[in-house]
Design a binder for these strands. Structure first.
Length: 891
RNA sequence: GGACGUUUAGCUCAGUUGGUUAGAGCGUUCGAUUCACAUUCGAAAGGUCGCAGGUUCGAAUCCUGCAACGUCCACCA
């Protein structure tokens, strides 16, 4: 393309697809092919991030886009640094979530009970179809975001290799006694007919009627409940040990006729009971409350299940109630009790209802035979683990999880999430891992009579497999190593070097679900941490701070935004102005601003491409070092010094996960220094081609991790033979004494002052063409050397150096230098006077307080020398400025 | 009930070991405009850093208390 024909505005939509294709086809996303692209990758250090596998439940949202932007930034940065980078791509079957989604779709299609009507195999077929479609969309979206991962290496939480890993770990845990089957109270979702882990249950605030009553007319103790229907299952009454009212009953067994059912209740004393709540007595329902089940276990109370898996009353509730819904039963019971005169009080109280996170249906707690992971149970370690335990030592899963973070082997960013993590781990209960849904890893357990066997395949004639599947987090917990070939010895040996992975980047909302479980699995199975750093990003909210949701209609879809503003702008808007762990408000305006910046970079490059000599830059790396003749003017020294300062700081900031700050620094330099000053100067002072290229060819790599498309595109237009994404990260080579920067500030300030005066004097532009100034010899020389720049940027036609300031002519001050400016004509003296007066007023208190500070002996002796010296210099400057201003006022 | 955050310019947010007169972007106001970019350029206005104490030579930053908002966890039956 002829450079002159470059479009005025960067057209992202027109070039992104091609660029991505080139990246993909070059093999740069594949860690094993990097060495073919550049020998420096041979034997290079590995750098690995596993992509938090998106759920195959639909499409990606802005939260995913943010995740991809940050991870791709890290991957591209480390790839350019010369690491063998492996970003492991994949998707998650998301068991329950996906099945629920498909069931809902099928119901919309007209099915009443899709599972029953279709049967396991046909139903699963539908789920798999949906998951496949979703997967295709997700992969396409990831590519649109520019994510540099190699989908040829795609993994799936439900594919054969991951299944082998799941079954292997299940067997290990079973043999270690960590996985057990038990009859316990679990969370049960009657709508979807499955158990749920504690983390999959939410609370919803509602109003409920709290009824205070006695079980029958003769019962001596009154209790309160919002769920009278569960009272058929009561087997105890609990009171506080110190409660005098009930002391005489403690230890006794009482009988009652509760709405036609004979029940037997043991009165127990437990400190957990709050004597001030209600009557101070608590009806214990071991089968339908996790809390009561704990009480029952301690006091040995029997368990009577009165609510069935269908959410209706069981035969244990008596003939009159069997088959009623809980709501119907509740109503009937209260009516009967009222008739009997047993009800003492009815009041409305706030209550938090248990509901399922997926599907929002109410959750019942009831006893079932399920599989659990025992987190508090001691077991013998199979590995040397975390440097604390040796093979054969006894510990618990909980201890492993705590120690990995406690010992700082895993660092969580921001670190306040470490506290939250510990709190969660400490209160962790056994993890119910069996689900009664069909979509997922089927539990590898076989039964024959009373025998139980763990096996991938049917052990022989007459064995039947447990129909349940595993909690989705069981398989995603293995993700860091199941994706790297484990447990296949050969494959694992090949990719072993990537584990522990370097960073786990994800939203803080799945810290418990996923991050914690990966730590559990990796420390248990491998005896090592799954990742070194955890970077938690915040949620993306709408401009009003609300969660994006379809019902509010405030969802911004990445796929709508990308064609409109370009991927680079979308990515920048998700990274800039954010910090880890903090939620982000995003509006289209913000994306628009970054689209403007993308265009700015485009035009900077277009300027350099079209105005400098051809062929443009030395096209081989390392041959663009500057000769001593280049970079000899003040402006050159200034921009080089600025650039290298920025480069070093940006490199450090990205390494420290301070992406937003790194980006801001780069933007300030690119826009504020390079474009607005240096490029303008290059129009006046010729011979800057080498430096323009020197900086642009480094700026593009620095920007690449933030905005890969536009930078790569410009890079290719310039004609570099090597793709930008595998070009090495710029290194420091500039020796910088800082003098150029300081001297240039004098020129810069002078120009700024002149510009301001021109703007504020509201004079005709033509009147402001001649300036006479009084300066010391040194400064005069400096200005004379750069006179062309001053004239051009301040739009003056003439500059004159005079011996003294003429009467009535304003003066101004730049840095240390007093400059008298004589304007040729048309100055509004009154206006200028006002302005000066104001400045004086601002200056005086500062001088006063600074002088006082410097007189303070304690301050001078205790403060660092640098602070004191800086302050002294600054004070001198301020004093000089004040003096000048006062003289000007007089005039 | 417990824990953890947040509170800085009109808006969105930076401010990492306490240290010059607290920053950016957007917005606002004023001005510029053939010359890479109107997706542009220059300038200005705008903040007692939520409140009250404390530590310190020095606090947006550390400590204590309070308030508002938010999130997570637990659930009083």
């Amino acid at each position: 393309m002829d450079m002159k024909d470059l479009p005025k505005a960067y057209d992202a939509a027109a070039v992104e697809a091609d660029i991505f294709k080139q990246w993909e086809e070059s093999g740069a996303f594949d860690p094993d092919k990097l060495a073919e692209l550049d020998p420096r990758y041979k034997g290079a250090k590995p750098y690995c991030i596993v992509l938090p596998p998106p759920n195959r439940t639909g499409t990606l949202h802005l939260g995913h886009a943010k995740m991809l932007a940050i991870e791709d930034l890290l991957i591209r940065f480390h790839r350019m640094l010369g690491k063998k980078t492996y970003w492991v791509p994949g998707t998650d079957h998301a068991a329950l979530a996906t099945q629920v989604k498909v069931e809902q779709l099928l119901i919309k299609e007209g099915f009443k009970d899709p599972r029953q009507e279709l049967g396991r195999e046909k139903f699963l077929e539908r789920v798999r179809d949906f998951a496949q479609q979703s997967r295709d969309t997700i992969v396409e979206q990831c590519k649109r975001m520019g994510s540099s991962m190699d989908w040829k290496r795609e993994k799936y939480t439900l594919d054969a290799e991951r299944n082998l890993a799941v079954n292997t770990v299940f067997k290990m845990m079973f043999e270690d006694g960590l996985i057990e089957r038990g009859y316990r109270v679990v969370n049960w979702d009657p709508t979807f007919q499955t158990t749920l882990s504690d983390d999959e249950v939410d609370h919803k605030d509602t109003q409920a009627e709290l009824v205070t009553f006695t079980y029958d007319k003769d019962f001596p103790i009154a209790i309160s409940t919002t769920r009278p229907e569960t009272k058929f299952g009561d087997t105890g009454v609990a009171v506080h040990p110190d409660d005098k009212r009930y002391k005489k009953f403690v230890g006794k067994t009482l009988k009652a006729n509760f709405c036609g059912k004979q029940i037997t209740l043991k009165v127990i004393a437990d400190a957990e009971v709050d004597p001030k709540f209600g009557t101070g007595a608590l009806g214990v329902t071991p089968a339908h409350s996790l809390i009561d089940a704990d009480l029952a276990e301690q006091h040995v109370l029997p368990m009577v299940q009165v609510i069935g898996q269908d959410g209706k009353m069981t035969a244990e509730a008596g003939k009159d109630f069997e088959g009623l819904t809980t709501i119907e039963a509740r109503k009937k019971i209260v009516e009967i009790l009222e008739k009997q005169g047993c009800v003492q009080k009815k009041e409305t109280v706030p209550q938090s209802l248990l509901i399922a996170q997926r599907g929002e249906s109410p959750v019942e707690q009831l006893p079932m035979r399920q599989w659990f992971v025992r987190v508090n149970k001691n077991f013998k370690l199979r590995n040397n683990t975390l440097g604390k335990w040796k093979k054969g030592d006894e510990t618990t899963l909980k201890d492993l999880m705590s120690y990995a973070v406690e010992s700082k082997q895993i660092k969580i960013l921001p670190d306040n999430f470490e506290k939250i993590y510990f709190h969660w781990v400490n209160n962790l209960r056994d993890w119910c891992i069996s689900r009664q849904i069909w979509f997922g890893h089927q539990i590898p357990v076989w039964y024959k009579g009373d025998e139980t066997k763990v096996s991938n395949d049917q052990p022989g004639e007459g064995w039947t497999r447990d129909p349940d599947t595993l909690d989705t987090w069981f398989s995603s917990g293995l993700w860091t190593f199941s994706t790297l070939g484990w447990p296949d010895k050969e494959k694992w040996a090949k990719e072993r070097e990537y584990h522990p992975t370097d960073v786990l980047e994800t939203g803080y909302d799945i810290l418990f679900f996923w991050v914690a479980r990966m730590i559990l699995m990796s420390t248990y199975v491998l005896g090592e941490i799954p990742f070194k750093d955890v970077y938690l990003h915040g949620l993306v909210r709408d401009e009003k701070g609300r969660k994006m949701s379809k019902s509010i209609g405030n969802v911004l879809d990445p796929l709508d935004l990308i064609p409109k503003y370009g991927t680079d702008a979308v990515r920048l808007s998700l990274v800039m102005g954010t910090s880890p762990g903090m939620d982000q408000k995003l509006s289209e305006d913000k994306i628009k601003d970054f689209r403007n910046f993308t265009n700015k970079l485009w035009n900077i490059s277009r300027f350099v491409l079209t105005t400098t000599r051809s062929p443009h830059p030395p096209l081989i790396r390392g041959e663009d070092e500057l000769s001593s003749a280049e970079g000899s003017t003040l402006a050159d020294r200034w921009i080089l010094s600025r650039y290298y300062g920025v480069q070093d700081r940006v490199t450090k900031l990205i390494g420290d996960y301070q992406f937003s700050q790194a980006g801001e620094l780069l933007r300030d330099f690119t826009w504020g220094d390079f474009a607005d000053w240096y490029l303008e100067i290059s129009k006046v002072e010729k011979g800057k081609d080498a430096i323009l290229w020197h900086i642009l060819s480094r700026l593009l790599p620095l920007w690449h991790p933030f905005m890969p498309f536009v930078t790569e595109y410009i890079w290719s237009l310039i004609g570099y033979p090597q793709q930008l994404l595998v070009t090495s990260w710029p290194k420091s080579s500039y020796e910088n004494d800082g003098k150029g920067e300081k001297e240039f500030e004098v020129i810069k300030n002078l120009i700024t002052d002149l510009r301001r005066m021109r703007a504020e004097q509201s004079v005709e532009p033509a009147a402001f063409i001649k300036v006479a100034m009084v300066v010391d010899k040194e400064t005069q020389k400096l200005i004379e050397e750069n006179i062309a720049i001053v004239k051009q940027l301040a739009r003056l036609e003439e500059v004159e150096f005079v011996s003294e300031v003429a009467k009535g002519w304003p003066t101004t001050v730049s840095g240390k230098t007093t400059v008298g400016l004589n304007l040729a004509s048309g100055i509004d003296v009154a206006k200028e006077g006002e302005k000066i007066q104001k400045e004086i007023e601002q200056l005086k208190p500062y001088i006063k307080s600074t002088e006082a500070k410097l007189k303070n002996k304690e301050f001078v002796s205790k403060a660092p020398e640098k602070v004191v010296n800086d302050m002294k210099n600054k004070l001198e400057e301020a004093k000089a400025k004040l003096k000048a201003l006062e003289e000007r006022m007089k005039a």
